[in-house]
Nucleic acid binder design. Structure first.
Lengths: 144, 144
DNA sequence: AATAAATAAATTGCGCAAAATTGATTGCAT
DNA sequence: ATGCAATCAATTTTGCGCAATTTATTTATT
């Protein structure tokens, strides 16, 4: 055990998480391509399907993204006709994002995505436990 | 349990992994900034500190990156004087990347990075077990 | 030897991702 | 009422990350 062991790739916790995240996002890509969404657009639409109408701030909070990422994502979803943007009447600084009927209809196609992905990750023994572990880690990392 | 539950953000496995990865990389950022490296440059240097001299193909294999990402990363490390590039004599298609003395010296400062990060992730109960879990997941996702 | 196939890095194009800056709007304290 | 700090989204800049294409080199086939 020399003093540089902490610098070995195999001894990192972050690196495998980083590789896992990229790999899973890549596994989504072909299925998302069928409905012409990127992964970031997809998770944004997930919030929209749940909440129908949200502020940009709410999206940032739920997706852990900042406006530099979110503004262009929302703009692309507007171009595709899935959401609309408008300023809040109560507070002109707030942006209100609203799901359109076209956006809501996309849900019918999107529902196939997690089903198709399921067969890609068949190798995982206990997905529920894994998810709990990861969510616990996320909580530790993001609160503070 | 309706048919759209699979589309809820809270029911995803990928999303928390994706957030964890970004969050940890962000926690590295201030410490890496002190030694003027990005995260990708840092993991590339990790391989260089271990192997001293590698082909670009070997880097791609270890880091799970493609040439579109790796070529500019290597070029920046060359600019900083930490590595040199040269073509292989045996096979002119191969690029050989070699650690310079300056690059090796950087290891002395870099060794502080994982130590400093340690206090950022104090909240994790069983890091060793977590690492095993994540590495097992990485294996499942990347082999195939 | 000539040509085709394979393999490797480099380039291009697009979309994140985050820090830093800008500019508009709000609300509070004089 | 007026100025000032806080709070937003939007913009800018830099750097991944990857698919698709291009270019250079090597290997295999005729």
């Amino acid at each position: 055990m020399d003093k540089y062991d902490l610098l070995k790739l195999d001894n990192q916790l972050c690196f495998p998480i980083y590789v896992c995240a990229k790999t899973i996002v890549n596994k989504y890509a072909p299925f998302l391509k069928e409905i012409d969404l990127t992964y970031t657009q997809y998770i944004t639409m997930m919030v929209m399907w749940e909440e129908k109408k949200v502020t940009s701030g709410r999206l940032k909070q739920r997706l852990f993204l900042d406006s530099g990422t979110l503004t262009p994502v929302i703009n692309r979803l507007v171009e595709k006709g899935y959401v609309t943007k408008q300023r809040s009447e109560e507070d002109g600084r707030d942006l209100i994002v609203t799901l359109t009927p076209e956006g809501d209809a996309l849900k019918e196609k999107a529902v196939e995505v997690p089903i198709k992905l399921g067969s890609c990750i068949k190798g995982i023994d206990n997905p529920a436990e894994l998810k709990e572990t990861v969510c616990a880690l996320m909580k530790i990392l993001t609160e503070e």
